[in-house]
C-alpha cells in the first residue's frame, strides 16, 4: 500500500471520529427534545427528523454510501420505494376507516 493510501485512510479515521461525536450529541439532543412541551405530532416529526439525520450519517460515512457505486444506489432506491409502499399500507387503511 502506498503512502498516499495510508494518508487517505488516516483522513477517513478523522471523519469517523467526527461522525461518532455528532451521533453521540444527537442522541442526547433527541432525548432532551422528548421533554419539550410540544404536541405529539411535532414530537414525532422532531424525533424522526433527528433519527433520519443520524441514520444518514451512519449510512453515508460508516457504510460509505456517499461514495458508493451506482448499482448499489439503484438497488437501495428501489428498496426504499417498496419500503415506502409498505409504510403506506397502515396509513391507507387508517384514512380509509376514518373517512367511512
Amino acid at each position: 500500500m502506498s503512502d498516499n493510501d495510508q494518508a487517505h485512510i488516516q483522513e477517513h479515521i478523522k471523519v469517523y471520529l467526527t461522525v461518532f461525536g455528532a451521533l453521540a450529541v444527537l442522541t442526547v439532543v433527541t432525548v432532551l427534545a422528548s421533554y419539550l412541551d410540544v404536541s405529539s405530532t411535532e414530537a414525532i416529526f422532531l424525533a424522526l427528523a433527528i433519527a433520519t439525520v443520524k441514520a444518514s450519517l451512519v449510512a453515508g460515512y460508516f457504510m460509505h454510501l456517499i461514495t458508493e457505486r451506482q448499482t448499489i444506489i439503484y438497488i437501495l432506491c428501489l428498496t426504499f420505494f417498496f419500503f415506502l409502499v409498505c409504510m403506506f399500507l397502515p396509513l391507507i387503511t387508517h384514512t380509509d376507516h376514518t373517512a367511512l
Binding site: 457505486r69 448499482t71 448499489i72 438497488i75 428498496t79 419500503f83 409498505c86 409504510m87 397502515p90 387503511t93
Partner: peptide, 29 residues
C-alpha cells in the same frame, strides 16, 4: 466497480430493510 460480496451484502441488507419495514408498518398500524 464492485466485488461479489459487496453487492451480496447490500442485496441482503435490502431484504433486511423490508423485514424491519414490515414490522415498522405493523407498529404504525
Amino acid at each position: 466497480g464492485l466485488n461479489n460480496s459487496k453487492l451480496g451484502i447490500w442485496v441482503f441488507l435490502a431484504s433486511e430493510v423490508m423485514l424491519f419495514g414490515g414490522l415498522f408498518s405493523a407498529y404504525v398500524f
